[in-house]
Amino acid sequence: MDDELHARLKAYEGRPAAVAGTGRDPVNAPMIRHWCEATGDRNPAYTGPGAIAPPTMLQAWIMGGLSGHEGRAQAYDELLSLLDEAGCTSVVATDCEQEYLRPLRPGDEVAFDTVIESVSQRKTTKLGTGYFVTTRTDVRVAEELVGTHRFRILKYAPRTHAPSGQASSARASSGHASSGPAPNEYVPSEHAPTPTGREEKAQGRQEAPRRPRPVVNRDNAGFWEGVRRHRLLVQRCTGCDTLRFPWLPGCNACGSPEWDTVEADGEGTVFSYVVMHHPPFPAFSPPYAIGLIELAEGVRIISNVVDVPYDKVRIGMPVELEFRSYDDEDGELVLPVFRPRAGEVAA
């Protein structure tokens, strides 16, 4: 995170985060009743003829729901991407301010526009270092401004922790291979805590920082599906029997598009390795070792060398496969990693 980043982020102030959004449902009695029951609010103003909606429901009427959101502007995605690229991959909702200009009543159809109001200087908090981003949503009914909803998030680089890998050989395989990059993006209209929850709730979300996900598409999904089931699958050309890795839809030796797979038996040696020191990344705690492992079958794969100090990894070291689960803020990630082979001690 460089100070010049702030200048780039500031340029987004005043730009739209959502344009011409509309509430998914008109203001309605059933949602009001559920809200009041959930919050224990028995105010008679919210029931019966002439009922109004609890003012604090303001955001409930503009949320996108689980199926997604519409009308989000490119500027906001760009802003979040800039922060992601700068290492500020985590997000926490910090607070929310609302102003109520007139009560909402069943039947009101809300529309809204959201603007990026401000981006703070770089701040360091207990969670990590990042930037506060404030958006302001103007909520209207038939062009009349009925309320404003100001929402603040902290987009930050989490403090680094030791990788939280745990051996999972005895566990049922319940991980999933992510279908490509899923930036941990924050969607104010979807996942925002309710105005009554706010900071305490958000601060309670202590999650491990996110490891980069495998990049999965139709050509290599079979590999990551195998990993999920704790099998390391190597492609084999059925035309010339050449094994290949990485996964590709054709054979470099003979050009054949036909292939099947063989399961690696898990033995290998360290062909080369790197010890990572700088720069630091979330989910990795430098120094750490990454190996280029040559499998007994003859193909190579990049992986982590585990259960050995980073400065004891050597070329030629015999290693064996293990599947580990890494639980982080995006759920469980299963990866094939390699540990020194049993009975063979590192030099």
Partner: peptide, 25 residues
């Protein structure tokens, strides 16, 4: 400053074999 995610294109997947293990720069 490195790379932490890539689109699932052919180019992206090529780099994707290294990213989860922290080989990022």
């Amino acid at each position: 400053s490195g790379v932490r995610h890539r689109e699932p294109s052919a180019e992206g997947t090529a780099l994707g074999w290294t990213l989860p293990f922290g080989l990022l720069t």
